[in-house]
Simulated scan of single mutants.
Amino acid sequence: MVKVGTYFAMTLGAFIFWQSMDKLHVWIALHQDEKNERLEKEAEIRRVREELLRQQANQRDSLA
């Protein structure tokens, strides 16, 4: 009876561990995706800002 109880407890513990690791991996992957999206948005904003500054500089040069 002890062997059966131990087997059941170990099986349940392994299942819980497996599920928690699976949820942890999903959580990590989601946060990495969010971080990558944020970095891409920031890079796009910098690129657009630099382009606008270049256009403004060209307009000032052409007016002067």
Rank of each mutant, 00 (worst) to 15 (best):
Q32I: 13
L52M: 10
V2Q: 12
A14K: 15
E50F: 07
A9E: 01
A14Q: 08
L63V: 04
Q59R: 04
D61T: 06
K41M: 11
R60W: 06
D33I: 14
Y7F: 15
V4L: 10
H25P: 00
K23H: 04
W18A: 15
T11R: 01
L53P: 01
R47L: 03
V4I: 13
L53N: 13
L52I: 13
T6W: 12
N58A: 15
V4A: 02
E37Q: 14
S62E: 12
E42V: 03
T6A: 05
Q19V: 00
Q59P: 05
V4N: 02
A64F: 01
E37V: 08
I28T: 08
M10S: 11
E51C: 02
A43D: 04
Q56P: 01
D33R: 14
A57I: 11
F8G: 07
S20E: 05
E40Y: 09
E44P: 05
D33K: 14
L30H: 03
K41F: 07
L39G: 04
S20I: 11
A64Y: 07
T11A: 13
W18M: 12
Q56D: 14
D33F: 13
Q55H: 03
V48I: 14
F17N: 00
L39Y: 13
S20Y: 08
Q55N: 13
H25W: 12
M1V: 11
A64I: 06
Q55Y: 00
I45L: 12
E34T: 04
R47N: 00
F8R: 08
L30G: 04
G13I: 09
V26P: 01
R47P: 03
D61Q: 13
G5S: 04
Q19L: 12
K23D: 06
K35V: 03
I16N: 06
Q19E: 03
K35D: 02
I16M: 09
A64V: 07
M1T: 09
S62G: 04
A9C: 05
I16G: 04
F8H: 14
G5T: 06
L53Q: 15
L39P: 00
Q56C: 03
I28M: 06
V48C: 03
A29K: 09
E50T: 01
